[in-house]
C-alpha cells in the first residue's frame, strides 16, 4: 500500500487539522491525510512543512484559498518535485473522495477530488 498517494491539507490557522480529523471520522481511513498549518510561517517554512508532509511520495496538496502563502508553498513544492498536484478550495467532500481513490495518478486524483468538491457546493432554495 506504500505506493498510494498522500494527501496533504494546507490551510490557515488550525483549519487543516480539523478537516483531516473530520475526513477521518467520516471515512474511517486514518493516516491518508496530513494537516499543515501556515501559522508562524514565511514562504520558505510553509514549503518546508509541505515537503516534510509529502516525504518524497506522490501526493495531492489541498489548499484552502486560491492565493496566498499556503498556495505559494504548495506550488513551490510542485515546481521542485514531480508527482505532486495542487487543488485549491479544499472542502470535506473532496477529501473524503480522495482518501478512497489514492491508487490513481496524482493528476487523476486531483481532478477527481476537485470535481467532487465542486459538486458539493450548492445554494439550496
Amino acid at each position: 500500500m506504500s505506493d498510494e498517494l498522500k494527501g496533504v491539507v494546507v490551510c490557515h490557522g488550525s483549519l487543516a487539522k480539523a478537516l483531516v480529523e473530520a475526513a477521518e471520522q467520516i471515512s474511517g481511513i486514518r493516516g491518508a491525510l496530513a494537516p499543515v498549518s501556515n501559522t508562524g510561517c514565511d514562504r520558505e517554512l510553509i514549503e518546508q512543512r509541505i515537503a516534510a508532509a509529502i516525504d518524497g511520495s506522490s501526493a495531492v496538496v489541498f489548499v484552502d484559498m486560491p492565493s496566498g502563502s499556503c498556495l505559494f508553498g504548495a506550488l513551490q513544492r510542485r515546481r521542485l518535485q514531480t508527482g505532486v498536484e495542487v487543488v485549491t478550495g479544499v472542502n470535506l467532500a473532496m477529501l473524503v473522495d480522495f482518501v478512497f481513490h489514492r491508487t490513481l495518478s496524482a493528476a487523476d486524483a486531483a481532478r477527481r477530488a476537485a470535481a467532487a468538491g465542486e459538486k458539493a457546493i450548492r445554494a439550496l432554495e
Binding site: 490557515h12 510561517c41 514565511d42 514562504r43 484559498m65 492565493s67 496566498g68 502563502s69 505559494f72
Partner: peptide, 10 residues
C-alpha cells in the same frame, strides 16, 4: 511582511 501578498495584506 515575508509572506508578501496574502490575506492579511489584501
Amino acid at each position: 511582511d515575508d509572506r508578501l501578498v496574502h490575506g492579511q495584506v489584501v
